[in-house]
């Protein structure tokens, strides 16, 4: 949307611009014309207001309210919040070693899910972008895991990654390797959880990237071929640069999802107190918020403070993402 469009009077369709800036209908119009004017002027608002009314309370109010809460004390089981405590709750969270661990766990799981996902999705998409027999069937097939709910995926993979009775270790042992301590070793636990995420989302991202591939003008390839570029060269010099915005989209949505991961590690947990492993090996930030909100002193305000810290982290990561992409893009243009 261009700036001019926004500045134009409300209710006007793009193609027309009889542009009267004043809220009052031009004089000399009939009542019916006036009505029509009001209709065109205010309908656009009427259409978005229902959405925003709901959206503000659903999406915005809780964040604002938790921001407010984070500056108060609220003893466990109290019905209302107590006195203001400044930044004490933020201090508590930021100095909590468990929070630090949760932060790195979340980043680790995110990297282990985002990177393989993007790579595999790109490769599979490239294969789907060929004149396959039964194209629709293949596309549907890669999307199949999408119908498996995270809770279901977590339960299925929980059985595969069980330490002593799981399939993964049984296979490893069968080929003469020793089993992996999926619930104990930090990296192994991240891998197991990332596998659940990858399972559900790789096919979905494949389709997104496939769509981007198909939007690349075929002449670009023809031109490259005439220049003598091999298929591999074509992939790196034509395909990848063309789908970069889509990649960024995939990565950003993966970031948002990755920072919120909860169901998979929670159901994977063997610790009775849901600490994400006895040594907090795979406690994620969202799990931290959840656990904080029902234990210790001041559960609500501390959970709220942690929430806001996480929001700031996400914004930070998004900006970093943006900066890196711009840098890469600039280098690419040079």
């Amino acid at each position: 949307m261009s700036v001019t469009r926004t500045d134009a009077p409300a209710g006007e369709v793009l193609a027309t611009s009889p542009a009267t800036g004043s809220p009052v209908p031009p004089p000399g119009l009939t009542w019916r014309q006036k009505l029509s004017h009001w209709d065109f002027r205010f309908s656009p608002y009427l259409y978005v207001v229902p959405f925003f009314a709901l959206f503000l309370v659903i999406g915005v109010y809780p964040m604002v309210y938790s921001g407010y809460l984070s500056f108060f004390s609220w003893p466990r089981y109290g019905l209302t919040h107590g006195e203001g405590v400044g930044f004490a709750n933020y201090g508590h969270v930021l100095t909590d070693p468990v929070f630090h661990k949760a932060f790195w766990n979340t980043i680790g799981i995110f990297v282990l899910s985002a990177v393989p996902q993007v790579v595999v999705a790109t490769v599979v998409a490239a294969m789907l972008d060929t004149p396959l027999r039964g194209r629709t069937w293949w596309r549907m097939s890669v999307l199949l895991p999408f119908v498996v709910a995270p809770a279901a995926a977590a339960l299925i993979f929980g059985s595969i990654f069980a330490d002593k009775t799981g399939l993964a270790n049984e296979v490893l042992r069968a080929v003469g390797l020793s089993g992996v301590a999926w619930h104990t070793d930090r990296f192994a636990s991240w891998t197991a959880i990332a596998t659940m995420v990858n399972y559900r989302w790789t096919g979905y991202n494949t389709l997104i990237i496939l769509a981007a591939l198909q939007a690349i003008p075929r002449q670009l390839y023809e031109a490259a071929a005439i220049d003598g570029a091999s298929r591999v060269q074509q992939f790196f010099h034509v395909t990848l640069p063309s789908i970069r915005p889509t990649m960024l989209f995939v990565i950003i949505t993966a970031t948002i999802g990755g920072m919120q991961i909860f169901t998979e590690p929670r159901l994977f947990d063997t610790n009775l107190q849901f600490q994400g492993g006895a040594d907090y090996q795979y406690q994620t930030l969202t799990m931290y918020v959840f656990n904080t909100s029902n234990s210790g002193t001041d559960p609500y305000p501390r959970a709220a403070a942690a929430t806001w810290i996480i929001v700031l982290i996400i914004i930070g990561i998004a900006l970093l993402n943006y900066a890196i992409t711009r840098q890469v893009q600039r280098r690419g243009e040079r």
Binding site: M1, V13, L14, V48, G59, P62, M63, I315
Partner: peptide, 25 residues
């Protein structure tokens, strides 16, 4: 349709997609 503030409002909506509101329980 064109209306005042539509750009800002849309940008706002898109931006909130990045905020994990599920943390607001």
């Amino acid at each position: 349709l064109r209306f005042r503030g539509s750009n800002v409002a849309m940008a706002f909506v898109v931006a909130t997609m990045a905020v994990p509101t599920q943390l607001a329980f």
